[in-house]
Computed example of a mutant assay.
Amino acid sequence: MQYSCKTLSLTLGAVALSFAASSASADTVKLGYHGLNYKVIQTRVDTDPGAGTNFVRADTGMFNMSVQTPDAGGIFKSGQTVLAWCVEVTQSVSEGIVYNIATTGQSWTKSITRLFDKYYDQVKNSITSAAMQLAIWEIVGGDANLKLSDGNFQAKTSYDSDPKNNTDSNKAYTLAQKWLDELNDGDVARKWDVVHLTNGKAQDLVTVVQISEVPLPGAALMFLSALGVGGLARRKRAAKPELALAA
């Protein structure tokens, strides 16, 4: 069965936001899909990059996944819950997908890491979960100005004519934009390593694992750095298990 971060039937074909991951390592993990972790927040997002003309309905929030086959590097354990968010708005997510664990940093790695370091602790309900998803889509597929209202990725402040839907959608939109506006303000403590999961036929995901409590050099804290999976696996053995993101 196919699942999607959109309620549209996803005949979106080759609409490309070009989030191709470079996966130098062949390390993989197989994940099961168990729906969104919180109540669905319905939003409208644009799948026509830069044009703002093809808005579709999207079920927005954090995926609840589980590890069916762990990776050889030991980042994920069998049966572990993985909380993740969608990277590609034009793809769907399926049950039992094998993901490559990308080991080369993307242009958005630093900003996504900072987003989680600053705001992941606030993700405790459907509104904050949806806000995190919108912010991720903007960072990965949008422009340097990080505005949901324009650029290569766009979202609507409202969903439809239902006041309840509009209220929730607007709250998520407003919070996501606030986080984006404040993303680069001040210093932030390093708490999370970003994990980028890719599959050519399914939605790419992003999740995080908690870093070791032992202070490490900044470069050593980055999952998607030149240190690759080997360095991460060593750190993860001392980390608190089980958390990640995506939608």
Rank of each mutant, 00 (worst) to 15 (best):
M1C: 10
M1Q: 06
Y3L: 15
Y3K: 11
T7L: 14
L8D: 15
S9T: 13
T11P: 08
T11F: 01
A16S: 13
L17P: 07
F19N: 11
A20M: 04
A20Q: 05
A21N: 06
S22L: 11
G32C: 01
G35F: 09
G35H: 08
L36V: 06
N37P: 00
N37C: 12
Q42T: 10
D48M: 10
D48Q: 12
G50F: 01
T53G: 12
T53A: 14
V56I: 15
D59H: 10
N64Y: 08
M65N: 03
S66I: 06
V67M: 03
P70S: 07
D71E: 06
A72P: 01
A72N: 05
A72M: 05
F76L: 13
S78G: 07
G79Q: 04
T81R: 03
V89Y: 01
T90Q: 07
S92W: 00
S94Q: 07
V98W: 00
Y99I: 06
Y99A: 12
A102D: 06
A102T: 05
T104G: 08
Q106I: 03
R114N: 03
R114V: 03
F116N: 08
F116V: 04
D117M: 11
K118S: 08
Y119F: 15
Y119M: 12
Y120C: 09
D121M: 12
D121V: 13
A130M: 02
A130K: 06
A130W: 01
M132F: 13
M132D: 02
Q133G: 05
E138W: 02
V140R: 02
V140A: 02
G141M: 07
G142S: 07
A144C: 03
K147H: 11
G151H: 09
A155E: 04
K156D: 10
K156N: 14
S161Y: 08
S161M: 10
T167V: 07
D168L: 15
N170F: 13
K178R: 14
D181N: 15
V195N: 05
T198H: 11
K201M: 11
A202T: 10
Q203S: 14
V206C: 12
I211V: 13
I211F: 02
I211S: 13
V214H: 00
L216I: 12
P217Y: 01
A220R: 04
A220I: 03
M222H: 06
L224W: 03
L227D: 09
L232D: 07
L232R: 11
L232T: 09
L232M: 14
R235W: 07
P241Q: 06
E242R: 05
